[in-house]
C-alpha cells in the first residue's frame, strides 16, 4: 500500500526500520520535518528510523507532497475530486490521506483543492473482536440504538467496523447499512471495500447523512444502520428519522464522555427523547479503544 504512495528514501526506512503494526500515521509537510505516529507517540522520521530529533528528519519539498497525492490518486485527481473537496483521499489498501492545500471556490462552494502543502497518511489497523467485551450490552435479545462516545483518535471507527462484523455473525444476521460519509469505516476505494465489515453489510460512501438515512432506508431496507460522527443537529435529526422508521442505529460522536453530550446543543433533543438506548464510552487510557463504560438511556452505568 505505502509503496504506491511514497517514494525513496522514506519508503525504505518505513519498510525496513519501522514495525508496520505500530505505525498509525505519517505526516508530511512541505519544508518541515516528517513525523510519524508510532506506538501512539509522535516522533520524527529519519534515515535511521524514528527519533525525537527534528534536525535529522526527512524534509520534503512541495513537489514531493504533490507527488504523494498524485500517486495516491493514480495520477487522476478528477477521479477523487469529490473526496479532495472534503480534504481526503482513500486509497487501495484502506489508507486514508488527509490533505491540506489551497481551496478553489466558486459560488461559495469549494470546487477543488490545489497547491497541496500537507498530507497526513492514516494507516488503518483492523482490530478483530475489539468490541466483543461490550457486545452483549448492545445486542442480546434485541439490537439497541447505540451511541459510541469518544474523543478523536480513541478508536471508535475501528470499534464500529468490528461491531459490524460481530453483528453479521448473529443468527439470523441483520442487514446492515453502513453510511461511510468519509470512507473511513470500510475504506472503499474504486468501489472495493478495503476493510472487513462483515458479509451482511451494504456500504454507501461519499454521501451526506440525511441523504444516506432517507434513501438508504428506502432502497436497502436495513435492519441496522451504522454511521460515524454525528456532528450536528441535522445529523442527529436524520438518525431520529431512521429510528422512527423502525431501523436500529449505531452511531458515534466526538465527546470526552457521555456527560459531555449535555454540552452539545445538537444532542439536546436526542437525549431528551431518549432515542439512544445505549452509550458506549471509549478512551485512549490503555490504548485506543479502551472501553470506559456502557450506559443505558438514563445514563446509568450497566458495564
Amino acid at each position: 500500500m505505502l509503496e504506491k504512495i511514497l517514494s525513496e528514501p522514506i519508503l525504505s526506512v518505513l519498510q525496513e526500520k519501522i514495525n508496520g503494526d505500530k505505525l498509525y500515521e505519517i505526516r508530511l509537510r512541505a519544508r518541515k520535518p516528517v513525523m510519524v505516529n508510532y506506538c501512539g507517540r509522535y516522533m520524527y522520521l529519519t534515515a535511521d528510523g524514528v527519533s525525537d530529533e527534528a534536525a535529522r528528519a526527512f524534509v520534503p519539498d512541495r513537489k514531493a507532497i504533490e507527488s504523494v497525492i498524485l500517486r495516491a490518486s493514480e495520477h487522476s485527481l478528477y477521479v477523487f475530486n469529490e473526496q479532495i473537496k472534503q480534504s481526503f483521499i482513500t486509497v487501495m489498501g484502506g489508507a486514508r490521506l488527509g490533505i491540506c492545500g489551497e481551496s478553489v471556490s466558486e459560488g461559495g462552494a469549494v470546487k477543488t483543492v490545489k497547491n497541496f502543502t500537507s498530507v497526513n497518511i492514516r494507516i488503518p489497523h483492523e482490530v478483530k473482536n475489539c468490541s466483543l467485551n461490550c457486545f452483549k450490552y448492545i445486542a442480546d435479545k434485541q439490537i439497541y440504538n447505540t451511541l459510541i462516545v469518544s474523543p478523536p483518535g480513541a478508536g471508535k471507527t475501528t470499534w464500529l467496523r468490528d461491531l459490524a462484523c460481530q453483528l453479521s455473525r448473529l443468527v439470523p444476521p441483520p442487514n446492515i447499512l453502513i453510511l461511510d460519509e468519509r470512507s473511513e469505516i470500510a475504506a472503499v476505494s474504486a468501489g472495493i471495500p478495503q476493510l472487513d465489515t462483515g458479509p451482511t453489510s451494504d456500504i454507501m460512501t461519499n454521501c451526506g447523512k440525511a441523504y444516506g438515512f432517507e434513501y438508504g432506508v428506502r432502497s436497502m431496507r436495513p435492519d441496522v444502520i451504522i454511521t460515524d460522527e454525528l456532528a450536528n443537529a441535522a445529523d442527529a435529526e436524520a438518525a431520529a428519522g431512521a429510528i422512527a422508521a423502525g431501523v436500529k442505529i449505531i452511531a458515534s460522536t466526538h465527546a470526552f464522555d457521555h456527560l459531555d453530550l449535555n454540552l452539545k446543543p445538537a444532542f439536546e433533543s436526542v437525549l431528551k427523547r431518549r432515542l439512544f438506548n445505549r452509550f458506549v464510552v471509549l478512551s485512549n487510557r490503555r490504548g485506543p479503544g479502551t472501553c470506559e463504560g456502557v450506559y443505558d438511556e438514563n445514563l446509568n452505568r450497566i458495564f
Binding site: 498524485l70 490518486s73 495520477h75 487522476s76 485527481l77 478528477y78 475530486n81 479532495i84 470546487k111 477543488t112 490545489k114
Partner: peptide, 9 residues
C-alpha cells in the same frame, strides 16, 4: 491530464 477536477480537465 489528471492534474485537476473533471470540469477543468
Amino acid at each position: 491530464l489528471g492534474k485537476s477536477d473533471a470540469e477543468n480537465q
